[in-house]
Amino acid sequence: MTMTANEDKSYCNWMSQLPPELHDIPLFKLAIPGSHDSMSYDLDINSSIMEPDRLKKLSKIYCARKIVQKWAITQEETITKQLDAGVRYFDLRIARKAHDPDPTRLYFHHGLYTKTDVETVLEEVNDWAGGHPKEILILALSHFHGFDKNIAEHLHRHLISFIMTLFGAKLIHTKETPSLKSCWGKGRNVIVSYDHSTQHSNEIWSKIPYYYGDSMDTSEVESKLRHILEKASPVQSFSVCGLNLTLPESARVLLYILRPFDHLVGVIRRSLPRLLRWVEQQSAKTPMNIVASDVVTRNGFVSTVIKLNNPNA
């Protein structure tokens, strides 16, 4: 079941409610709930198909777009509702539409473009951050589809400038090793991770590694993540353990997307309880930092991750 409004509210300020002994440790040693493909609830059925490649040529066919939408939506709630539910890491995939008359207008994407543009969504996030100064948000911007060579540098400069102007004094600097206490003391509560080699300022963080199983099989996802976590050195920087299921890029994708009465959210609902049991078991052996998932407002995902910070409570 989707969380009720009361359950959402109970995790709206969870960072400020952590026990005092956790206030001084680096944020990369906290367990933080995150959402995978955070904006996919907003996909536009009238958009052209961006992926998979095998279906791009079918963009003019409504049924093809509908199939892509069914298997590209990974989140059910708006970004504000995800924030209210306790999510603090957001996977934001950026794209520019070809032939857009506005040269710097950007959208999010996952199979299709979103209806809402990037600046509008980031303004909503900024408003939420301003109203919750003790909650630390991590925004991971990546992919940058449609950033053609002749305009890419200009688009990156424009987007980074917008981010720095919008969030301003809320931005946590890269030279810091942030903890809750240090962020609260400086009045900063937004980290922006930018997955591109463009020149970064002290306010923009580089890519945060995102580890995932690259499979639709939960056993395989668990096995790959376990291998990564057990090989990793002690956590000294941010990292993401992605519980998300991934459709194959080969022709095998048709085995899933041509199912008439199924969709990705349905598959995830059935798989997430098992994955969360694995998280609880694995966290006792290896530390986890950001744990990201699809359908983050279901199955007690947020509460499960937050409880990793204080398992004996």
Score class of each variant (00 low, 15 high):
L276W: 12
P260I: 06
I268Q: 10
T286H: 04
R226C: 12
P287K: 07
Q281K: 14
L247D: 04
L275H: 15
A251N: 06
V240T: 08
F238P: 00
G242Y: 02
R259V: 04
S237T: 00
I228N: 12
D262H: 07
G242N: 10
S233Q: 13
P234V: 09
T246K: 04
Y256L: 07
E280L: 12
R252N: 10
S237L: 00
Q236D: 15
D262R: 09
L272F: 12
S250Q: 03
S283N: 14
S271I: 11
L254I: 04
F238H: 00
L255N: 08
R277A: 14
A251E: 04
V235Q: 05
K231H: 13
R259D: 05
Q282N: 07
G266I: 02
L243Y: 07
R252M: 05
R277C: 13
R252F: 01
T246V: 04
T286M: 05
P260M: 06
L247W: 02
L229H: 12
V267K: 11
E230V: 14
K231Q: 15
I228L: 12
K285F: 00
S239K: 07
A284G: 05
P260Y: 03
F261W: 08
L264E: 08
L275F: 14
R226F: 09
T246I: 03
R252A: 08
V240P: 02
L275V: 15
G266P: 00
L272V: 12
P248C: 02
I257S: 07
P234E: 11
S233V: 11
S239M: 09
A251F: 04
K285N: 02
A251M: 05
L258V: 01
V235M: 07
L276N: 14
I268H: 09
R274Q: 15
Q236I: 01
H263K: 09
L245V: 06
T246C: 02
L243M: 09
R277M: 12
N244H: 05
L258Q: 03
S237G: 10
Y256F: 10
P273L: 12
R259E: 09
P273A: 14
E280I: 13
V253K: 02
R274C: 14
L254K: 02
D262T: 08
P260E: 06
L229Q: 13
Q236F: 01
L276P: 11
A232R: 14
L245H: 04
P234C: 12
V253M: 07
L243G: 09
S233I: 10
F261P: 00
C241Q: 04
R269P: 01
A232F: 03
V265I: 08
V235N: 02
A284N: 05
L255S: 06
L255Y: 01
L276A: 14
V240W: 04
P248H: 01
P260L: 06
E280M: 12
V235K: 00
L254Q: 05
L275C: 15
T286D: 03
D262F: 01
